[in-house]
Design a protein around this nucleic acid. Structure first.
Length: 256
DNA sequence: ATGTCGGCCTTTGGCCGA
């Protein structure tokens, strides 16, 4: 099975990129983030023509997540369980089952806007995710969590100088909660196969981040033990960042 | 050098979020 996650930074701007990428890589599932459109504006037809069914959670202007699936995918949740109404309203979460595996596609709050209140929202979100993952693992469900976590887990996960130490993506509170997810028994797929060195998934549009390779690793795929031990491939598709009108994130692909 | 995007409204440029 091959599964990918990709923050596309507007699906209407990136429909052609996604179509081309699907035709080349033919993943079984592709999780998308930052759709930036409401459900009726989602260009489903272009993906259905390639054999992919679309399930999306949209909202105007910001956020938005989807899964494109060429095998049956039964959606079970369109918001992260355990969040209060205000935290759950933004379109950041989709969960469902395919081939007996539970998949979570997520777009975690960045945490840099809205001051300390905005950062606290990010931490609450991560704590609810921890509770959700713990509940699923307690039932011995094979689990994959894929998406834009907006966390650089370690200092190896961003280019020196790419972020100040005060950034919400590297603050110790964010990293501690990411580690707590791993401590549940989940495997960070890319790091399992590429244990050291930079494996970036994002390069800012600003400041020549791409030509200078000033990247971050913030898009992750976490897998439960029985899936992780079958892992054959886990890599960001760097090439995609060099395309015309690219998203600032690239797809991360896992095979198992 | 916070140097670019995308979307929205305040609408043909300024704002927010990233």
């Amino acid at each position: 099975m091959r599964v990918a996650t990709w923050n596309v930074n507007s699906i209407r701007q990136r429909e052609g990129h996604v179509r081309r990428w699907l035709e080349t890589h033919k993943p079984d599932l592709l999780f998308l983030q930052e759709l930036k459109c409401e459900t009726p504006a989602f260009p489903a037809g272009g993906f259905e023509a390639l054999g992919y069914r679309c399930e999306m959670v949209g909202q105007k202007a910001y956020n938005g997540v989807a899964v494109l699936a060429r095998l049956p995918f039964a959606v079970t949740h369109r918001a992260l369980p355990g969040l209060g109404p205000e935290d759950a309203a933004p379109a950041r979460y989709i969960e469902g089952v395919a081939e007996g595996i539970t998949f979570i596609g997520l777009y975690l709050p960045n945490g840099n806007s809205g001051g300390e209140a905005g950062f606290a929202t990010k931490l609450r979100w991560m704590e609810a995710l921890h509770a959700r993952a713990a509940a699923l693992l307690a039932d011995d469900v094979p689990l994959v969590i894929a998406g834009d976590f907006n966390v650089c887990p370690t200092d190896e996960d961003f280019a020196p100088g790419a972020l100040p130490p005060t950034d919400a993506l590297v603050r110790p509170e964010s990293r501690a909660r990411f580690r707590s997810l791993l401590w549940l028994g989940l495997t960070d797929a890319v790091r399992a196969l590429h244990p050291t060195g930079p494996v970036y998934t994002f390069w800012d549009y600003q400041a020549g981040a791409w030509p200078r390779d000033m990247g971050l690793r913030i898009d992750h795929v976490l897998m439960s033990p029985t899936l992780a031990e079958r892992l054959t491939e886990a890599v960001p598709d760097r090439r995609e960042r060099g395309e015309e009108k690219a998203s600032d994130h690239v797809p991360v692909v896992v095979g198992f």
